[in-house]
C-alpha cells in the first residue's frame, strides 16, 4: 500500500507535537521512524493509524484520505501494534488473535469465520504452537508475536508498529524484526534502536522536535553527523562485516549535549 503523509500537524492543549510532516512510503517497503524521546514518532504513527485526526494536512493510502474512511474499512487495511499491550482478562492466544477478525465481521455474524486466516496469521507470526496458551503466561517476546498475529489477522495492507522491540531481549528483537521483514507488507515502525533500524529497514525517516530532519535510504540518512545532531552521540558508521549494510559504532555522548 502506498502511503502519502501530506503536511500533517497535530497538537494537544495548544502545544504542537508534530508539525508539517510529509513523507511518502512505497508499497512493500519497511520504513523506520527514528528520533529521540518526545520527537513525535508515536504521535505520527497514531495519526497514520487513523487513531488521531490531524489538525492540518492529510494521510492518503492508495490515494484515499485515511481519516475520511469508515473506521471498520480502515481497520481492514491498516493494522497497528502498540508498544506494550496489556489486558486484565484471561484470554487465550487464539482469542487474542481472533480480535483481529473483528473488522471483517458483521455485527450479528457468529464468530467462526476466517478460521483459515487465523491459522495463517499465527503461522506467519510463528505462534502456532502457542494457540491454546493463556496470554497472561506469555513472555514479552511471545506477547509481541501474538499482537503481530492479531494485526495480521486483520489482513492489513499497511502495518504500523510502535517501538515493537522495546521490551524484548536482543535475540527476540532480531527474531521479531526478521519476521516482520519477511511478511512483504508495507510497514512503518517507530524504532529506538538505530542498529535494528539500519539492519531491517529499506528507508529511514528521522524526526526531531516534531519535524522531519532527514529521510531516505538507510545509507544516506544514517550518518555520524545526523547521529551527533539528533541524539547528541559521537559515532562512526561502518559497513557491517557480513551484510555490508550500515552499522553504527558509538563512542560516547558529546560533552555538554545532555546537560540541562
Amino acid at each position: 500500500m502506498r502511503v502519502e503523509v501530506e503536511a500533517v500537524a497535530w497538537s494537544v492543549g495548544g502545544r504542537t507535537i508534530i508539525d508539517d510532516i510529509s513523507l511518502s512510503v512505497r508499497p512493500g517497503t519497511v520504513t523506520g521512524l527514528l528520533g529521540p524521546n518526545g520527537s513525535g514518532k508515536s504521535t505520527l504513527l497514531n495519526v497514520v493509524a487513523g487513531l488521531r485526526s490531524p489538525a492540518a494536512g492529510r494521510v492518503l493510502v492508495d490515494g484515499r484520505d485515511l481519516h475520511r474512511m469508515r473506521p471498520r474499512l480502515r481497520a481492514q487495511q491498516v493494522a497497528y501494534v502498540e508498544q506494550h499491550a496489556t489486558t486484565g482478562l484471561d484470554l487465550s492466544v487464539r482469542e487474542v488473535v481472533e480480535l483481529g477478525r473483528i473488522p471483517h465481521r458483521g455485527r450479528w455474524r457468529a464468530g467462526e469465520d476466517g478460521a483459515g486466516r487465523l491459522a495463517e496469521a499465527m503461522r506467519l507470526a510463528r505462534i502456532d504452537q502457542l494457540a491454546d496458551r493463556a496470554w497472561q503466561t506469555l513472555s514479552g517476546g511471545e506477547r509481541q508475536r501474538t499482537q503481530l498475529a492479531r494485526a495480521l489477522a486483520q489482513e492489513p495492507s499497511l502495518l504500523l508498529l510502535d517501538e515493537p522491540t522495546n521490551h524484548l531481549d536482543l535475540g527476540h528483537q532480531i527474531d521479531f524484526m526478521t519476521t516482520v521483514r519477511g511478511l512483504g507488507i508495507t510497514t512503518i515502525a517507530a524504532l529506538h534502536d538505530l542498529e535494528l533500524a539500519a539492519a531491517f529497514c529499506d528507508r529511514l525517516v528521522v524526526l526531531q522536535d516534531g519535524g522531519v530532519v532527514a529521510s531516505g535510504a538507510v545509507a544516506d540518512v544514517l550518518t555520524s553527523e545526523l547521529v551527533a545532531e539528533v541524539y547528541g552521540v559521537e559515532a562512526t558508521i561502518e559497513a557491517h562485516p557480513r551484510t555490508g549494510r550500515p552499522h553504527l559504532v558509538w563512542h560516547g555522548v558529546r560533552v555538554g549535549d545532555l546537560v540541562g
Binding site: 491498516v78 455485527r107 450479528w108
Partner: peptide, 24 residues
C-alpha cells in the same frame, strides 16, 4: 448488548486497541 459483543471484545486491550480495530 449482543449486537455490541464484538465491540466489547475489542476493548480487551484498551481504548486505543479497540479504535485500531475499527470500533468507534
Amino acid at each position: 448488548a449482543l449486537g455490541y459483543a464484538a465491540h466489547l471484545d475489542a476493548f480487551a486491550f484498551g481504548e486505543t486497541a479497540a479504535r485500531s480495530l475499527g470500533v468507534p
